[in-house]
Amino acid sequence: MDRLTGKTSIVTGAGEGIGRAIARMFAHEGAQVVIANRNEAKGKETVELIKDAGGQATFIRTDVTDTEDVKRLVEETVAIYGKLDVLCNSHGVYGLDTREISDLPEGDWDLMMDTNAKGVFLTTKYAVPAMRTAGGGSIVNISSIAALAKSAQPAYAASKGAVNAFTKGVATQVAEFNIRANVISPSTIETDRRTELAQSAQYKNDFLAHTSEDEAAGSVEIINRVLPGFGEPDDIAYAAVYLASDESAYVTATVLPVDGGTTRTRTD
């Protein structure tokens, strides 16, 4: 397995869920992986999982909303591995705005925008010069079906819409440096965090308030999807390997849905 051999990769939000799956898959494909997230215990756990499987990984504590943290993340990555080839933004907050927009606290809006949108801006801002030095690179941003669909989580959707638009804009700017940028657009992926959330009383109340009884019996997303079941973190990880690797050298400024064929909500 050598689809990413020799590539130094930063994966944000890699302490759990989709980010962890991506980090493990990248390492499995031969990349040196920097695990960039806030929670040290979880981040180091991902590093251990990768090392146990014979891969290379390092943890660098990073809050993606903090300029100094992000700057240091890229500097340390280059110091440790000599260069930066791949940036995968897999951090994010969600599940906050299932309530009516008039009840959404301003602080929740800010949190989503800071983390989901500004976090991608900051990592990109500092990664691009390092990738230029490396002679090129690939940026893979994990967005959400919410940005393409008519989502009942408008603030979250807006933060992810920003990611999609930003990615395409950056792609056109940095193409001349041989840097590509693409989006993966997942629908519901079964992660621990997601399961926890779906079981929380508040989520049930808020989310299901927008949902018909039929839909509530299952889940609105399941009904909207043509493939059976939820996606798994590895489904996103495989897409990320494709977009991170040179196999996708001719692919940039695109949005790749990995969403089980979500219908009704998506027209592309």
């Binding site: 590509r180 798994e232 897409a239 940039t252």
Partner: peptide, 24 residues
Amino acid sequence: YAALYLASDESKYVTSDMMLVDGG
């Protein structure tokens, strides 16, 4: 390479996609 991804089980959660491979 795009066809390989879509043909393989790696994309088992991908359907109805229009994958652009167009140099941007």
